[in-house]
Design a protein around this nucleic acid. Sequence first.
DNA 1: CGCCTATTTCCTGGTT
DNA 2: AAACCAGGAAATAGGC
Length: 163
Amino acid sequence: MCHRLADLLATVTTHRKNLEQQVLPDKTSPHTSVCEETSIQETKSSPVTPKHHSRRGTKGNRTNQSVHLWEFVRDLLLSPHKNQDAVRWENRKEGTFRVVKSDMFAQLWGEQKKNKCMNYEKLSRALRHYYKSGILERVDGRLTYKFGKKAHGWREDSPKQLT
DNA sequence: CGCCTATTTCCTGGTT
DNA sequence: AAACCAGGAAATAGGC
């Protein structure tokens, strides 16, 4: 849920996260709606058919289906397909990449997660969490990140796993 | 149901 | 001044 619009209106005076404000019976808004921002609602009849892995094949198909953020970014980098200039390699060998269009970058992630309220601020926070786990490493320069030791599958000559 | 992980959401404050 | 970056906290969502 990402509709705190009512909150904003109510918290005009105090902006302290305390005060248990669990009383929000205000249903004055018939369609609180999600946080519609960019009214770009193309997809409707667009052929977004992923058309691959139709769940099955070898039995163990339950290990993961959620696609982690870093994998999503890696796949975006690896396929000039969708990635409309949202993110680009800075140095493929090093594993550094740069977010060119932060808005679209967040847009794409939002689509993937079916979250209309995604934005770069929140996406970048999730990315920052990766520094601690070693999936990403910090590098200087705005909008630039680097794959860490725990990330795999992004090298040009990487058969797959292999630390 | 509870625990756990991977984000997601929010926020304060600093930097470019 | 608008966009970013840094993290801490707390809330969620899905899996097990």
